[in-house]
């Protein structure tokens, strides 16, 4: 059992939890994730490790309520426990001092971006961070990212904070203005795809962090397979980071849809249960 030490609502439908998991806290590096299972009936879902405290022994996780499991996770209060959590999984981000780096995060993907922002800053890079969201309310981790960024650019669809527009508008402005050595983009797949196209236009290498369907997360089943540079890779062990230009985006987006009917069924059933229990 893994105890939830703290729980916070960051935005409508977005939550942060600190989970007591000393072993994972000790080993996790930027770019890695965990797989958790709430109870004996639960499924295994992957979540990025946003931050750790090796002394206190916790890992910080952020998730958005998008279906049954995340809805149930949102009901877990501080003091309660998760049945299982395993990690850290996946390859860590290659952190070194590249010079000037550009980091782009969208929606709940900002949670996965933040540890990379932090690690790159600590490695001595000049860090430019672009964060995008629908509106000010949904823009998470703004202060955390600001702390580790030399420049922070905020973009919202409605202009309620920062500039009105999408993250690729801000990317263009940065690329036009100065030389960027490396770029990272994490967010919805459509955003990562367009970030990739933008970076390619300016001949800048870009890493994306893929979030396909996973089951074990240890390279055992291939459920998370993606085509990268025309060969099959398992995102859980070969990734989750890949070069954006090498990803077969259409295939990736298509595979994400695989269980939509079942996901919906599960979610409706859960909502009924919740309503029945008041």
């Amino acid at each position: 059992m893994f105890k939830v030490l703290e729980r916070k609502e960051l935005a409508p439908t977005e939550f942060e939890i600190l989970v007591d998991a000393p072993r994972i806290a000790k080993k996790a590096k930027a770019g890695q994730f965990v797989i958790l299972r709430i109870d004996e009936y639960g499924e295994r879902i992957p979540l990025t490790v946003v931050d750790t405290d090796t002394e206190a022994g916790w890992v910080r996780l952020i998730f958005q309520v998008i279906g049954k499991t995340t809805a149930q996770l949102a009901t877990v209060r501080a003091g309660e426990a998760l049945r299982y959590i395993v990690g850290p999984l996946g390859k860590a981000t290659d952190i070194e001092n590249y010079g000037t780096v550009l980091l782009v995060g969208g929606g709940v993907g900002i949670a996965a971006l933040f540890p990379i922002v932090k690690a790159l800053k600590e490695a001595g890079n000049r860090v430019i961070t672009i964060l995008g969201a629908k509106n000010a309310e949904l823009l998470i981790l703004q202060e955390d990212c600001a702390k580790y960024s030399d420049e922070l650019i905020l973009m919202t669809d409605d202009g309620s904070i920062g500039q009105k527009g999408v993250v690729t508008n801000a990317m263009e402005a940065v690329f036009k203005r100065e030389e960027v050595v490396m770029t990272w983009a994490i967010g919805p797949s459509i955003m990562m795809k367009f970030c990739t196209l933008t970076a390619q236009k300016y001949n800048t290498p870009i890493y994306v962090s893929l979030n396909p369907i996973m089951i074990d997360g240890t390279g055992m089943c291939g459920g998370c397979r993606v085509t990268v540079a025309d060969s099959i890779k398992f995102a859980c062990v070969d990734g989750p980071e890949f070069l954006g230009e090498e990803v077969d985006w259409d295939e990736f987006v298509n595979r994400m849809q695989q269980y939509r009917p079942e996901e919906q069924l599960s979610n409706e059933r859960y909502e009924k249960q919740v309503n029945a229990n008041g």
Binding site: E43, T69, I215, C221, G223, R225, V226, I232, Q257, S266
Partner: peptide
């Protein structure tokens, strides 16, 4: 190979056996 509907036996059997997929939606893994 990456079409929806194509599985490794490991994934298919892990969903069914380890995750009790045959008892979905009582168990969460479809």
């Amino acid at each position: 190979t990456s079409l929806n509907g194509v599985y490794s036996s490991s994934e298919y059997l892990t969903r069914v056996n380890l995750m009790h997929g045959y008892q979905f939606p009582q168990y969460d893994t479809p």
